[in-house]
Amino acid sequence: MSAALLVARVGSADDLLALARAARELGFATLDAHAPHTVEGLGEALALPPSPVRSLMLVGGLGAAAAIFAYQYWTSVHGYPINSGGRPLNSWPAFLFATFETGVLGAALAGFTGFLWSCGLPRPSHPFFEAAAARAVTDDGYALTLDPRDPRARIDALDILRTRPEILSVEVIG
């Protein structure tokens, strides 16, 4: 297995936060944390870059809205101009309904694909799943993962184990 992980399981979200901060201070570059729910501050603790999802949604939403409005305008005014109840060809207020709904839909679709893409999902197999802690993580387990190929990891991990009482167990995968 090419990828490998060092998984340190802790007992609570607070421990996880503390451990993550410590690990980062120790200079671990590629680390990740796992929790059964969102843990406020974990992103900062891991120094995650801001999520691109919302920007994608803004672009997707505005793009879809602009496209559908332009499309309505073109079909009504140029493509197939018909007199419908004496309304002007460019009945733009009436066009806004589809524009809004499509915009929201576009944002949602862009957001969802962006979310999956950012998360690297779907990914049915991942080294983390090999860990004994993986199953606990969706229940009540908290874990910090380090890349064991990091030459420092194996050494520092021992230090951590020694210095951090909150760590319950450590496994090395791969």
Binding site: I82, S84, G85, G86
Partner: peptide, 20 residues
């Protein structure tokens, strides 16, 4: 045959329309 026909703008498929 209303010039401002109420039946026309409500048709979703432009089956009720005004001709020239």
């Amino acid at each position: 045959h209303c010039e401002k026909a109420p039946c026309e703008p409500v048709c979703p498929v432009a089956a009720s329309v005004h001709d020239g």
